[in-house]
Amino acid sequence: MNIFRLTGDLSHLAAIIILLLKIWKSRSCAGISGKSQILFAIVFTARYLDLLTSFISVYNTSMKVIYIGCAYATVYLIYAKFRATYDGNHDSFRVEFLVVPVGGLAVLINHTFSPLEILWTFSIYLESVAILPQLFMISKTGEAETITTHYLFCLGMYRTLYLFNWVWRFYFEGFFDMIAIVAGLVQTVLYCDFFYLYVTKVLKGKKLSLPA
């Protein structure tokens, strides 16, 4: 464990909790892509199946359980409890265009051709693009609530910090995982445009709105 990984995990946790609280406090999931949240729930489920097969640490196990629990709670809030506020018309990204190629890629390029390993690889690839429905929704409506941008910023920071973690682990432990690194790079690049808007607008107290 190094500082980048720990802050990355905490940033990830902060993102998840910010989103849950935003929906819970405002009793509304307006502006949130339910599709992205379903994809994240699939990502955690596919990746953390190793909860059943291997134990790494109390920290590792508890974070996995919290991530999975929060992901399903978020999906429940969007599609059941506050369904009336869900903006389905603007959440029109075709997720099959992500899930199908990503599934194929996981079968073709993985570390070991075994069910658990393929599911892990699938989750890594899927996570890298799971935010696209959310970004698509924002580009479609042209705006995002400030709290939603804080969520996206924490989520983007998480994988960015993991990139530093991988550099660290390569130098000090000789460890590198090409699949995680390439997917992590893709994931981080997808946030670059958003990071720019976050710094130039949201941090200066303006609402994030895109030019028409």
Binding site: R5, D50, K64, Y67, T112, N165
Partner: peptide, 10 residues
């Protein structure tokens, strides 16, 4: 590395 890798990251 082990054939059946252990993924220790989240």
């Amino acid at each position: 590395q082990d054939l059946e890798e252990q993924h220790d990251e989240l």
